[in-house]
Design a protein around this nucleic acid. Sequence first.
DNA 1: CCTCCAGGTTAACGACCGCTAACAACTCTG
DNA 2: CAGAGTTGTTAGCGGTCGTTAACCTGGAGG
Lengths: 237, 237
Amino acid sequence: MNRMTTRTAAPTRREQILRHAARLFAERGFHGVGVDEIGAAVGISGPGLYRHFAGKDAMLAELLVGISERLLEGGRLRARAAEDGGPAAVLASLVEGHIDFALDDRPLITLHDRELDRLRDKDRRMVRQLQRQYVELWVDVVRRLHTAVPEAEARASVHAVFGLLNSTPHFGSHRGGLPDRSGTAELLRTLAHGAFASLGAWPSGAGQVPGGGPDTIDVQVDVESLHGTDGSGPAAG
Amino acid sequence: MNRMTTRTAAPTRREQILRHAARLFAERGFHGVGVDEIGAAVGISGPGLYRHFAGKDAMLAELLVGISERLLEGGRLRARAAEDGGPAAVLASLVEGHIDFALDDRPLITLHDRELDRLRDKDRRMVRQLQRQYVELWVDVVRRLHTAVPEAEARASVHAVFGLLNSTPHFGSHRGGLPDRSGTAELLRTLAHGAFASLGAWPSGAGQVPGGGPDTIDVQVDVESLHGTDGSGPAAG
DNA sequence: CCTCCAGGTTAACGACCGCTAACAACTCTG
DNA sequence: CAGAGTTGTTAGCGGTCGTTAACCTGGAGG
């Protein structure tokens, strides 16, 4: 259960299987990978997996639920830890955590929004709920930073930035990819904050996109007014 | 093999099949969709598809090659048309074109970076080459805009912004999603330009990111003609 | 009327895949 | 060493899937 405390004592095989299954699922898709292949990746063969998992679906379910839980838990921890710094610090912390995740667990982050529909109803609903809560963390802080941005736009922006941050799988496959991790992290951080910063000018009167010469968009953070505005959104269920 | 001009007033069976196949592939993955299902979507059943395509692989290949070709061609046209306005106008035009594509052909844009590995070597190489050329269009203009950004970082940024723009499939599945097309387009445009604009401060001394204290992020954008970009309708799908 | 052809149909085949059954080897106790 | 539990193995079943084969149909053309 505990990620931090458990080291080598944990069931090695299960984790081994899960890691390779994640990689294979991300590479070839859930339906494109056979159980024999997963078994071969960990040194055992075929049906031996069924000593550890109820089935292929169960592996995917555990992977996706695990990712969602860890993302949400990490996000909550970071949001709470950075709360004193105000919304900008919280957002920066969330970005940082997501970047870490995207760089450390590329296959998982790929599965996370790709193979969700292959789950059974119960699991899918659970993953969806966890995802929604994670998104909500971001939406809340974005709306505190940019109070003029409606909720729907804030949510869409968060999803868009997720797409940006989760684009790391596309980096490695090309020649001349970024070699070092910290450089990639810094680039993603810069881009993500740049995207969010652009919301400072929202709504920019229809079609008034930044233009007409060099502009300077000042991102100002109101730390004071954020506590007062906690009205629950019209939010959808 | 090659339809002379795919712009048509009367969608052929082939096009009908391709459209539905794209949607189904995007929804459930290439391996997750059976030929019977594709056939049923267009009113014929199962093996009737083989009067129009050599096989399931051929459908995917034609889809992916078609997308890549259209993306590249559209990008080249737009880049050339906006050249007089300078790099900023070219970039804005590329963004505009990609947004149109992402909004009009969501399933295709999803397949474009998801099912590439299911192709035969020859087709995959062709798609990869077209994609590379398309990316090159963007990388060139980004580097002209931000001369201090190395090529690897520019390329990664382009991929990241693609991830941002291609995130539209995630919008519709939630309640409270953006209803209107133009609003979504404007949001994506704002976010994408914000991300690119952040490269203006690259390389930003490590760790300068907001977090310790809310900064003002100077986003300099020099765009004029970007809203006035050609108003031709979206390429018919 | 007969032929031809494009575009359908159903039946069925072979391959693959997820999963179970039955069995084996290697611990860990006592 | 006996017995039990864990973790493998191989053989094989049932179902699905992509594809092919064989047949049908509705016009176009002489």
